[in-house]
């Protein structure tokens, strides 16, 4: 058991980070911190994938000196997944930041609870 814990450090770090990010995104009231949580959560998954794709003692899967044997390189698929995932998380982050800016301009706060209270006040005034 102890040996397993020692040999899977990246995966453990990834899971801990995923938990931190998930909790931040779910529970934090501040919108910017929610978005930070989202990024931590996504990055944790990329760490996990990268750790899974890496094979000790092998090279980056780019052919430079004519070695075609697959056993010389690490698994390229997780790297590809990480790249795709980064693109997706950048666009999600951008959208959430844009929404946050809009809410901040309108209600002068980043606290979601306070924004909800002000929305309610605004409706009652109408």
């Amino acid at each position: 058991m102890a040996a397993e814990v020692l040999f899977n450090l990246e995966e453990e770090a990834a899971m801990v980070l995923f938990g931190i990010g998930f909790t931040m995104l779910l529970l934090h009231r501040n919108l910017i911190k929610k978005i930070m949580g989202l990024n931590i959560m996504d990055t944790a998954v990329y760490l996990f994938l990268a750790a899974k794709g890496y094979i000790q003692g092998r090279a980056v899967p780019i052919m430079t000196d004519g070695i075609t044997s697959a056993s010389a390189y690490i698994n390229p698929v997780p790297s590809g997944l990480v790249l795709t995932g980064i693109v997706v998380s950048v666009s999600t982050t951008a959208l959430m930041l844009a929404l946050t800016i809009r809410l901040y301009v309108r209600y002068g706060s980043l606290d979601l609870d306070r924004i909800l209270i002000r929305v309610k006040e605004e409706e009652e005034r109408k």
């Binding site: 995923f18 990010g21 998930f22 995104l25 779910l26 919108l31 929610k34 989202l38 959560m41 996504d42 998954v45 999600t92 959208l95 959430m96 929404l99 946050t100 809009r102 809410l103 309108r106 209600y107 979601l112 924004i115 909800l116 002000r118 929305v119 605004e122 409706e123």
Partner: peptide, 21 residues
């Protein structure tokens, strides 16, 4: 409207949690 903006951000938060999982 204010309501739909806050609805959108809540939707994004919950959906991101789901996608993350």
């Amino acid at each position: 409207t204010g309501r739909s903006l806050t609805a959108a951000i809540r939707y994004m938060v919950m959906s991101s949690l789901g996608s993350g999982l």
